[in-house]
Design a protein around this nucleic acid. Structure first.
Lengths: 204, 204
DNA sequence: GAATGGTTAAAACATATGGTTAAATCAAAA
DNA sequence: TTTTGATTTAACCATATGTTTTAACCATTC
């Protein structure tokens, strides 16, 4: 059950509104007035709680970036096969993004536009522990369980297949004529299709 | 050989500058003054040649959209196997986007933000002739050359694997530490890797 | 209930920004 | 050379927009 607008503190109302507006319009397209209207408060209050548009955006960006980082990264430290990891990762990550389908295009676009300094400041201490998985990959390659493969290519394949449909959703819906529900049904299928495809491609 | 700035007509200078600025900052982030400065001309001249920011953007969007549509679509009407088509499409499309790596994120983002009316107006008469390919797909499935597959899943797979890395390039470079050259080298590899992966996954 | 300190809003402010105007410039035609 | 029409610019305009100010409001404390 989501808190109704009336139950929220002004600060919460602002954050909820800012998230909605920034996600829809991006940093440049968002207007402080839009956020105030959406929150049902005065524009000056935004500056009372968050000093500037930039500060408010920074707060939202951080929060939304969390919704973009796969929640299953601890998975990579578990004692399972590479195939199992891929299977679980794809299923869970697609599942996660289905709950927040506007997040990927927002994040990727802002990363593309914000100055690097801004990003470094925000995204510090967020590096995924990948060494263990790389070691396991090398091991299973040596054991001839999986074909030799460049880890970066595997990474690109997994992320591409999981995330791109959400990034391109408006275009895909435009050219195929699907509505939101049909699209989500296709993504539901992909929870199985994507890991199958990846695993088939590296299985020996 | 690219025309030097001095050789270009004012209109060409404006278009070149507008393309650069819009691609880098998007419709909302771009400033008419930036474009004027980049073109080395007065701001009023922008309005002399293109009535408004919206008109100028529309012109650029159309041009850039062309750089986003695969130049090899006629390929689908040729008399070759599905496998050959996939192979050529991936190789050529990745090749094409490597020449214009900023285009995908720009287009996808603007499609996400511009009102649908605007897009419909711009993107009319641009539908890829896909029926013939679909028929061929069905035929080769019946002939048991390829596995049964949802065409929309195949489409998503191909586009994802070809385009996503460019959309996510800043992020990928940020988390892997690659520079532009390393990234492009990886994409060079992908011209072979991607079609191989796709074909493996549907070959019977 | 007066005082206090945090909270909210209306209005004002400064600047940015898309767009316009009117004059200067320039090249080609007469 | 003069004229004419297109091109280019500087200055200006109106509005949008992020931010600040000032005062009203409101709950809590003394």
């Amino acid at each position: 059950m989501v808190k109704s607008k009336k139950d929220q503190s002004p600060e919460e109302k602002i954050l909820t509104a800012a998230k909605k507006v920034f996600l829809a319009k991006g940093m440049d397209g968002a207007r402080m007035q839009d956020i105030a209207d959406e929150a049902g408060i005065n524009k000056a209050l935004l500056h009372y709680y968050f000093r500037s548009k930039e500060k408010l955006f920074e707060t939202i960006f951080l929060e939304v970036a969390n919704a973009f980082v796969p929640k299953v990264i601890k998975l990579f430290e578990e004692d399972t096969t590479v195939f199992e990891k891929i299977e679980i990762f794809c299923r869970e990550y697609i599942n996660q993004i289905m709950q927040t389908p506007y997040v990927p295009i927002f994040i990727l676009n802002e990363i593309n536009k914000q100055p690097e300094a801004f990003l470094k400041k925000i995204l510090t201490g967020r590096n995924i522990p990948v060494e263990k998985f790389l070691a396991q990959l090398q091991k299973e390659i040596k054991q001839k369980i999986i074909k030799p493969i460049e880890p970066v290519q595997l990474l690109l394949n997994v992320l591409s297949l999981c995330l791109f449909p959400f990034v391109a959703r408006p275009m895909i819906q435009l050219i195929t004529g699907m509505d939101k529900n049909s699209f989500m049904a296709v993504m539901e299928q992909r929870k199985k299709e994507v890991p199958k495809l990846i695993i088939e491609s590296i299985k020996k």
